[in-house]
Design a binder for these strands. Structure first.
Lengths: 249, 249
DNA sequence: TAGGAGAATTAGACGACACTAAACTCCCTG
DNA sequence: CAGGGAGTTTAGTGTCGTCTAATTCTCCTA
């Protein structure tokens, strides 16, 4: 009965990941929470900055002490480098794990829209739950079915299976100068209302346009769609969400 | 800050499902463990029998006391009717919940084989994890993409969205009389080795055949495939896994 | 440069789920 | 019909991940 009991404990969901050896080789099955925290730290620590406890807490809708404790745990797992009272940064392993999760999320979002008929404003929450349960094998099959896509429905780059991710330098529609010829590359919101509005007015990744005008004092930006010549006025708040790739002028 | 803290607790994964009102209407989000236990009770309590603690423990690879405690919890949730020292049966709500999970599982299995190119011996584990994370909406979309299928890759019936499930009376290939003309309807194992072997010899749901011979003393059964006339010998152990629908004689 | 405001951490708890060891029940068999 | 063994439950722990309250740290500003 003892051998059996032992098998049990290992078969059941890993409570203590049973790390034999260094972290890298056969992935130790991170918990849903750990993956969420890693994603949060990834998104909050742009280029060398540290993610603060408070920002992580806000992003995950969790109390600050929970973050403190989790960061300590992530540090002992080697996924995060922590400076007490300052914040945390991902280690190489942590970054890889975060990118795996982000890849899963973005492939799922695209798959749900392309193959299962979901609108782009509804896929975020689905993907948020599925990303923790789906295996990389399924994700890779989905990616193949999607012809190895580079971007998710919102234009966010999809990390490759080996953990590299494109980083383009984009400008917000709100700040690009009048006269610029741009391509809308990325829409940085998950709010369904905004997404529906944007899609309803043709403002989706891939759109080419020219900035025809911008009113001062936080006023709207007017864009002219490139092939068609159609004109669209975009308010400041939305313009800030639209990240563009630019042929200058 | 208090209103915020309250919102938090509700947004985060439900620890205590916060039941306002009766169980039926907007599903109270059962945990992965609860769903697993409900499925186990469902599968173990065929027609009116009760599922015993020990059998549930064996099926879920969990210690018996864990089952005891969980059954008590399920009973307070109204999902299970419990007789101490005897076992448990599903209530109507418990049965509905179990069938929802089983529907998700079986639709996922079929989707993975049909649309993502997985072999039928590999989909069980994937589906086992996904079934707890995927929404009914996604499942329904998958079902539509599959043309509202009635059976999963192993021939198990897929419960409908409203919670009804087909129950056919099947006979095992091991016990059907020689001379029977049968249709292989269901393969009752998830063991990859056995599944691969069976598929490799054409023994998959939908096959029509006649029982040509059976050796005594637990010997093999010989079947003749119906359109082609090809002959296949099947040992006792495997024959017991093959459930058939029969035109008698 | 001494407060203080704000952020982070520690302290103490809880709920969900799992485990082992020990006690208890039920029922079968001698 | 009285053990005794199989099966079940109780008792006591542990881990993960969360919370609130209280404490500690940092850094800006008066």
């Amino acid at each position: 009965m003892n051998a059996q009991a032992t098998r049990r404990r290992q078969t059941r969901r890993s409570q203590t990941p049973a790390r034999r050896g260094p972290v890298r080789p056969s992935l130790p099955e991170l918990s849903r929470s750990v993956e969420d925290y890693l994603k949060a730290v990834y998104h909050l620590s742009d280029q060398g900055a540290v993610a603060t406890t408070k920002d992580i807490a806000l992003r995950l809708l969790v109390a600050a002490p929970s973050v403190s404790i989790m960061l300590k745990r992530l540090a002992t797992l080697g996924l995060v480098k922590r400076v007490p009272y300052q914040g945390a940064q991902l280690t190489r392993e942590g970054r890889q794990a975060a990118l795996r999760t982000i890849r899963r999320h973005r492939v799922l979002e695209l798959y749900l829209t392309r193959h299962l008929g979901f609108a782009w404003d509804t896929v975020h929450d689905e993907a948020e739950r599925l990303e923790h349960a789906v295996s990389d094998l399924v994700i890779d099959r989905m990616a193949v079915a999607l012809d190895n896509p580079r971007y998710d429905p919102h234009g966010d780059p999809i990390p490759s299976a080996d953990g590299t991710i494109e980083s383009a330098s984009l400008v917000s529609l709100a700040t690009a100068p009048v006269g610029s010829e741009l391509e809308l590359r990325q829409v940085t919101t998950q709010d369904p209302e905004r997404l529906r509005f944007l899609a309803g007015h043709g403002l989706m990744p891939g759109l080419h346009f020219t900035i025809a005008d911008r009113q001062p004092f936080g006023g709207p930006t007017t864009v002219r769609f490139r092939p068609t010549g159609a004109v669209q006025v975009v308010g400041m708040e939305l313009a800030q969400l639209l990240m563009c790739l630019g042929g200058t002028k």
